Simulated scan of single mutants.
Amino acid sequence: MNSQSNVKEVDGAVVVSEKRTQKAVSTPLFSKKKLKDAGLFTLFVGPVFLAFTLIVLIPFFSGVYYAFTDWNGITGSVQWVGLDNFKYLIFEDKQFHASFLLTTKYTIVAILLTNVIGFGLAILVTQMLKTRNILRTVFFMPNLLGGLLLGFIWQFIFVKGFASIGEITGIPLFELAWLGDASTAFWGIVIVSVWQGAGYIMIIYIAALQNVPQELIEAARIDGANRFQILRHITMPLVAPAVTICLFLTTASSFKIFDANLSLTNGGPFKSTEMLALNIYTEAFVNNRYGIGEAKALIFFLVVAAITVLQVTISKKREVES
């Protein structure tokens, strides 16, 4: 720091003023603190980002590239075909269209049933019941089983168990060929998926219901509101964020259903229950048309992304309105 003295005369008096000048202190571009923070950031985020790049990003962008090629997934020769795969899927592939429509139908049904049953179970186990903890465990347990294992278990139930019950009781419902007919096979997949997913959705709704202020419910009861009015005007608006989350989860999982479809029916009978994920798998790894399979997967990704973003946007707006 330098100082400069100036002598001035004001009204006959001599005034000495000292002017201090300070040199700018330059901060190094890479200080020890910045290097330490960057090192810690790299230490914690680096391995995760590397794994994410190897497992997600590289396969995703390589899949986008192969969607524009005519590759069988085996040979080393890859031929660029441009938009030919997408033209074939849009205008010629009838099975792709049928699988897309079936998956959309299944998604709508599964979303409604899973959320309604999950919310109903959440209301049940949040009541003052002595067995509510046991019921929570029982309802959540199917979610812990893998999809393939669960599908094979239910395949045995549909084929052997229901047939035995039908022979003993004579009830027509148990005498149906559940996995041998297109309509009943579809509902068989729905039953298994809802049975597996409702317990997980129930946990999310339980967390939301436990955060509803009991003072509001008690005040509404004092004012003469019945259970339905309390549920509609108090409970539902307060659990709206949980509804948004559950709709998002069920939408994504329903569109991507694969393991239950594969283990229960494998797309049969005659590809009448072949969902879109199974159709993509069959195209790429059974028919050895990897390029067309990747084109289907890219279209599938864009559609699911658009639908989930739209669903979340609409649900968030309704949260604000309510």
Rank of each mutant, 00 (worst) to 15 (best):
G197L: 06
A207H: 09
L247S: 09
R221S: 14
W195V: 06
G199R: 12
A219P: 08
I245P: 03
T235Y: 03
P213W: 06
L238M: 15
R232V: 09
T184H: 11
I257R: 01
A208W: 14
I203S: 04
E215V: 05
V190R: 02
L247H: 05
R227C: 00
Q210M: 15
I201F: 03
Y205P: 00
A208T: 13
V239D: 01
A252N: 09
G197Q: 07
A198S: 15
I234G: 03
P241W: 09
I191Y: 04
R221C: 12
A185K: 00
S263I: 00
L231T: 12
I257M: 14
A207Y: 12
P241T: 11
Y205D: 02
I234K: 01
Q196R: 15
V192P: 02
A207D: 06
L238P: 03
P213S: 06
P237L: 14
I201G: 00
K256Q: 14
V212S: 05
L247V: 01
A260V: 15
V212F: 06
I222W: 11
V239R: 02
A220C: 11
D223F: 10
F228W: 15
A240R: 11
I257C: 01
V243N: 03
N261M: 14
G188K: 03
I245G: 02
A252L: 09
T184I: 05
A260E: 14
A185V: 03
T251F: 10
A182K: 13
T244W: 03
T251H: 02
S253V: 02
T244V: 13
W187A: 02
I206C: 08
V194A: 04
P237E: 11
I234Q: 01
I234R: 00
A220R: 10
G224H: 05
M202P: 07
G188R: 09
I217D: 04
L209K: 03
K256Y: 00
I201S: 07
W195Y: 12
T250M: 15
I189H: 03
T235N: 05
A225I: 09
S253K: 08
F258H: 00
Y200E: 08
F186I: 05
Q210C: 02
F248G: 13
P237T: 13
F228N: 07
E218T: 08
G188T: 12
M202D: 11
G188S: 15
Q214M: 10
R232Y: 14
Q196E: 10
M202W: 13
P237G: 12
C246D: 08
A220F: 12
K256D: 02
A207V: 13
G188I: 12
A240P: 00
E215R: 07
L209Q: 07
V239K: 01
L247W: 05
Y205G: 09
L231V: 07
L216S: 05
I191V: 14
Q196F: 02
I189L: 15
F186E: 05
L209P: 01
I191W: 02
V192R: 06
M202K: 12
F258Q: 03
V192E: 01
I201M: 13
V194F: 09
I204K: 07
W195K: 03
T251D: 03
I189K: 03
G180Q: 12
I234W: 04
E215G: 01
